[in-house]
Structures are given as C-alpha cells and as structure tokens.
Amino acid sequence: MPEQPATEAGTLRDSALDASFTGFFIRNHLDVETFLQRLEADRGMVEDVSQEAFIAIRAKWQDVQHYDDPRAYVMGAARNILRRHQARRGRTPTLFFDDLSMPEIAAPETPREAADRLAGWIQLLPPRMGEVMSLTHDGVPDRTIARLLGISHNTVREYKVEGRRKLLQLAQDDGFVVPAGRRRK
C-alpha cells in the first residue's frame, strides 16, 4: 500500500485529512490569533503568521492530529514563525513606558474590547514572559508551556507570578483598580 502512487485511496485520505483539519481550524484559529495578538500589535502580521502556521500544520496534520495537545502545538509553531517575522521586520523596539502619554482609557464593554485591552498589556511584558502569560490565558498547562518554549518548568511558574504582578501594575496605571463587584466566583 505505501508503495502505491497517488491514487484514489490517497485522494480519499487527503479529503479526510482536509475535513478533520477544517474542523480543527474553525475550533481553534481564533484562539491562535488571540494568542498572537498578545505578542504583536500589528494585526496584518498576526494574520499572516496565523495563516502560515496553519498551512505548516496542515502539512503535518496526519501526525499532529494525534498529538497530546494539537492546539498548543500550533501556538508553539505560530510563536516561532512570529518571532522570525518580527526579526525580519527589524527590531523597532517597543515603546518604553515613559514614551506613552496615556489618554483616559475607557472600560471595555465587550469581550472583544477586554481581550484587546489585555493584549495591549501583555505586549508590554518582556517577550518570553508575554509568551508565558499569553499561553496561560489560553489555558495551556505549565508543563506544556515549558516544553513549547523550551524553558524550565520552574521558569514558567516564576514568570507567571512575576507576569501577574506586572499586569496588575499596568492595569493599575491605566486606572483599572477597583473590582467591579460583579464577579460571581
């Protein structure tokens, strides 16, 4: 069988892969884009990178579909591609904190606005810490983050503590201090 040239069987197998990949894509592509948005403010680059990552995943989908956590795997691949794109663009260093003259920031009203606000803060973290925080917000477990980013488990846990502290500071600087009182948990 494996020796056979591309035949009807092969086409059938490809269609099956296409179908399961499409399902996977529709379930996860928004998560991947949101994940990338927290690492890169340029929406155009985020879309390009997301597309490139999914094309590469499709090429490996036969294997990837059986991985422990295909979604996390895509995020890891997308992150690598993103860093490559960013390096190619040249490092226009991100704004320093004191460069920003912050206008009054309105409280987000929709989930989308809230996600954008959160992304804006995570973008200001050191790159690796931002990656850890972004994956954490997508519910990726610590061990998986450590493996995806090639860092130690201890580093992930330390970065989560430090990252949360910095995010709280950033939120506070933007005037988000008082709990809304509508949290039910």
């Binding site: 929709t110 989308r112 959160l118 988000f176 709990p179």
Partner: peptide, 21 residues
Amino acid sequence: MNLDDIIELAAARQPSALDRA
C-alpha cells in the same frame, strides 16, 4: 473594574456567526 474583571470578560468571548463564517 480591575485586571481580573477584564480577564474574565475577555474569556467570555464566544465566536459569533460572523466569526464562524
């Protein structure tokens, strides 16, 4: 509103019909 409120709100995002299309 504080950081946790915003994180919670952001997590509540559900793909709309438009998003699915």
